[in-house]
Amino acid sequence: MIEEILNVIQKSWKLVMFFVLLVSIFIFQRFIQSTVKKAANENRIPADVVNGIIVLIRFGSAIGVLYSAVYFLEFGESASISLSLFLGSIVSFASMYTIQNFVSGIYIVITRPFKVNDFVKIGNSEGVVTEISLNYTSILNFEGILELIPNKRILNSTFINYDQKIKDPNKKNQRLEWTEKIKSTLNEEEVTRYSFIWGAPLIDYKEIKSKLNTVCEKYESIFGYKPEYFPFTINHRLEFCFVLSSNQPITILKYKTNFLDDIVELFH
């Protein structure tokens, strides 16, 4: 009698273990969930992390249940391999976009098309680069707002780096000794040359020029360089291209709008 019971137990041992495991996974999951929620209520964990953790736990337990079913119910090795293949391909395809952002981030860091504190235009966003992380590049724009651009988009969009290295104009001689060449590359100063377009009304050209000149002279001391301008195209207005140069990209970010305000005020 006892032997028979033992026999049955031995036969269904794995089945029992499976159920025990299921229950323990369930209890474990519940326990962690309640702890996390409790911690969130006491403000020990930020609220946005809680959902993420819970989702992860649920996924983890689902995968645990699947694998324990394969193991304890003896579906065989091929079942476990196909299960992992199935899960693996889901995970790898799903993580493709994330990985693409990572790869693009690494690529940007290595090729360095721009660096932190450069004034850039990427696609339609303009501003000073404040951070290049592995997922996003953040740009401080004219509105004073941080704009996050996914690295993958940066790789696919046309960009302008307004920061230019300007060599010491006194050393124009090309045939320098190589030691001096190195020195001159060290002496290179970086100047931000930002350009934008604004259309003046169709009036006397000399008048336009004198008005623009007064504003440009006013801003020479602020930017450190005199703003330049040249006629760009003619449509319902006479469009000018303005070039603001400064040693500090932040200065341009700060005063470009003021500069344009002053010009607009003179004309209208």
Partner: peptide, 21 residues
Amino acid sequence: LGMSALFGTAIGFAIAVVVSN
């Protein structure tokens, strides 16, 4: 082999952005 094939697919697709340029 199976694992590396899986990782290879993910990374390969991701790197395609860079390599295409």
